[in-house]
Amino acid sequence: MKLGLVIDLDTCVGCHACAVACKQWNSSGISGPLTDYHPYGDQPGGVWLNRVRHYEEGVYPNSKTVNLPLSCMHCEQPPCVDVCPTGASYKRESDGVVLVDGERCIGCNYCAWACPYGTRELDTASGTMKKCTLCIDRIYDTRLPEAERTPACVLSCPTRARHFGDLDDPDSTVAELVRERRGYPLLPELGCVPVNRYLPLRPSAASRPSLEHEPGRDELSPAQRSSGPATGQEGAAAERGGAPARSPHRQQPAQPPSQWPNRRIYR
């Protein structure tokens, strides 16, 4: 198994719900509490396992704003695990989840240096390194209803931009999404082989009408071409293509609207 997250940048609105859901769940989760420093002070800070960044791509007026949630990628070749001298950081063989055993962690920070994604944070109060647990205490909790055995961030995401599952299983939703939407890893050149994938922005929506020729004018559907009286049942049929058959303006451009030809439409 290769459990991980697939995050859709095309619908992520950057709302931080996933980040706070993560904070909330994990505060009393297996690595909680997630200490907050100076919570009411000038420079509030604290331990978060998931943070959302906001980027801009391109230049006004063609710029795009892209929101990028970042949590542990559960790398297949995790440098954080390699460098950890105590074995506190480890990658589970069964499902690929990268975890920290707080008992063993000596707080050397080496893993945080080694992680290129900045997804590990030291809790100075407990003296241990903390990171996304992939909500290991949810996804295997058989006492939760099936649909909720999913990470808190995924459960919460209002735009359903986050998906969780087994990327090893070609039939899983996540694998399918990655295939279909060409999901990609971040910083691929560093060779950490992240499991988490990001779905790129979709090309502009399919329904954008093609408007090479003058729209709607020489392109009327048969229904729209029908004109004439309509009433009752027929009226409903006429409604289907309710656009007028002709443009009054085009026909008699010089006429004021008070003289535009009327269509017989029954009330």
Partner: peptide, 10 residues
């Protein structure tokens, strides 16, 4: 819906 690995739990 995400496929949950819960089946593997046992």
């Amino acid at each position: 819906m995400p496929s949950t690995p819960a089946a593997g739990a046992a």
